[in-house]
Simulated assay, not measured.
Amino acid sequence: MDAALEQIGPRLRAARRSSGLTLDELAERAGMSPSTLSRLESGKRQAALELLLPLTRELGIRIDDLLPPAPADPRVHRRVQRRDGMVIAPLTLEQAPVRAFKIVHPPRVEAPPSGVHDGYEWLYVLSGRVRLVLDDREHVVEQGEAAEFDTRTPHSMSATADGPAEVLSIFSPAGERIHTHGEVEPA
């Protein structure tokens, strides 16, 4: 049996229960026997349109509400951004609870000013070398290395002077706004 059809019975039962109706009450209102409704809810009877229409009418729902939603497109279709010489490619959907980006940092002789904001950040260096300044202490994160830090600690990140650095960065939504759209609060 189709997986979507298998979900009709449990969804029908859930809708009935959330409306506060007993099996007998809904069956009577919909003009069918309680055993027919019970078999529908348990999946032992095929869900035919002539049975579902009166039930959905009584429950105040649509037949579509008994079917699982269509799977969302998992592909990320967000625009690459350019800011302060960086190329920022989103790797997660905009509504994702955690935001991931591939960021290419241009080479810099000096570290940018440090800033602070709420959240945590995790980064992984794909290529090049990253200068990570945390609380005025400089760390060089090499290709293949990762770092994690509390972004309430004054911090800045840039490629070293010897070339660009390509990084995977993961942020909370607040961290994404700061790092990909605006400036961090100066430390």
Rank of each mutant, 00 (worst) to 15 (best):
V80N: 03
H117W: 04
P173E: 08
A15D: 06
I63L: 11
G9Y: 02
R78L: 15
D150A: 09
A159R: 00
L5P: 06
L91G: 03
V130K: 15
Q46K: 06
H105M: 15
V167C: 04
L66T: 07
I103L: 07
E166P: 02
P173G: 01
M157T: 04
D135V: 10
P71K: 06
I61T: 05
A15G: 04
L52G: 01
A147C: 11
P74T: 08
A161D: 15
S35I: 09
L51Q: 14
Q81T: 10
L37W: 05
T56W: 04
R57V: 14
P112R: 09
R17L: 13
Y124C: 05
V80I: 15
S172D: 15
P71Q: 09
A161T: 02
R78Y: 11
H179C: 14
V133D: 02
H77G: 14
G119N: 08
L5G: 09
P90R: 13
V109L: 02
F101C: 09
R11H: 10
A161Q: 01
R39W: 01
A187Y: 00
D162N: 09
E138N: 11
E94W: 05
D24I: 09
T153C: 11
V80Q: 06
E176W: 07
G182L: 13
I61D: 04
I103P: 01
R78T: 11
M32T: 12
G115A: 02
Q143R: 15
A3W: 11
P113K: 07
R78W: 12
L51R: 01
T160W: 07
I61R: 03
G115H: 08
G119Y: 00
H155D: 00
P10R: 04
I103K: 03
I170Y: 12
I103Q: 06
M32W: 11
P34S: 15
G20T: 10
